[in-house]
């Protein structure tokens, strides 16, 4: 165990040295092994006020909410931007759009919503809690955010109307597009060509 830790440390130190050498801070690299000790150690309470749940549910706060409670919060806090029927407005459309992601028509927009596109339910909780409503972010309680999450997922036909959202149930929600993402495949390779072989449009104004 200690050997692994030691190896990791050496690997880190090497990475660190390489990074610094590439920016020309050689003198700093020599001192990298030593710690500077600047700053302070924050208390548990200070760290505890932060949140950033992972898709597996780690980091979800306490609290719970129902679809009915969520509907009430939605109408007061969200409908003016996202629409009475969650159809969008100043804010994004939240539901619908399943089946529109497969699209090769340049004139037609795929409809990307929580229902059709978002891969993880935890993201919905996280984003609403951190950034919504736009003009009063952070003003909703955790119970209200759980309730809103329940309501939006219900309207999206993903959960039943009697669902209670909390730290245990929310991460278990399987979103329709959970398998819709793939890692970056780039760089792509493009040969230098005088003209693209497959088409010649001429000048398009």
């Amino acid at each position: 165990m200690s050997t692994i830790t030691e190896r990791r440390f050496v690997a880190r130190a090497c990475l660190f040295a390489v990074a610094l050498a590439s920016i020309g801070a050689d003198a700093f690299a020599r001192e990298a092994a030593a710690k500077f000790g600047f700053g302070t150690r924050p208390s548990e309470a200070e760290i505890g006020r932060f949140f950033s749940p992972l898709p597996d549910g780690r980091g979800m706060p306490q609290g719970s909410g129902s679809v009915l409670e969520g509907k009430s919060v939605y109408q007061q806090q969200c409908a003016s931007c996202h629409g009475e029927k969650l159809q969008g407005g100043i804010g994004d459309r939240l539901i619908g759009g399943r089946g529109t992601l497969v699209n090769a028509d340049p004139r037609k927009a795929p409809i990307k919503t929580v229902e059709s596109y978002w891969p993880y339910a935890t993201t919905l909780f996280d984003y609403v809690k951190r950034a919504m409503p736009l003009t009063a972010p952070g003003s909703l309680t955790d119970d209200q955010v759980y309730a809103l999450t329940a309501y939006i997922l219900f309207e999206a036909n993903i959960v039943a109307d009697d669902v209670i959202m909390n730290a245990e149930t929310l991460p278990k929600v399987v979103m329709p597009n959970v398998d819709g993402f793939m890692p970056d495949h780039r760089p792509e390779h493009f040969p230098p060509v005088a003209k693209t072989p497959h088409q010649s449009l001429g000048i398009v104004k």
Partner: peptide
């Protein structure tokens, strides 16, 4: 996830 991902015509999106 919902933003800054590249949705391809086959319905799959490139992430990161």
């Amino acid at each position: 996830t919902s933003k800054y991902t590249d949705l391809f015509p086959d319905g799959k999106a490139v992430q990161f």
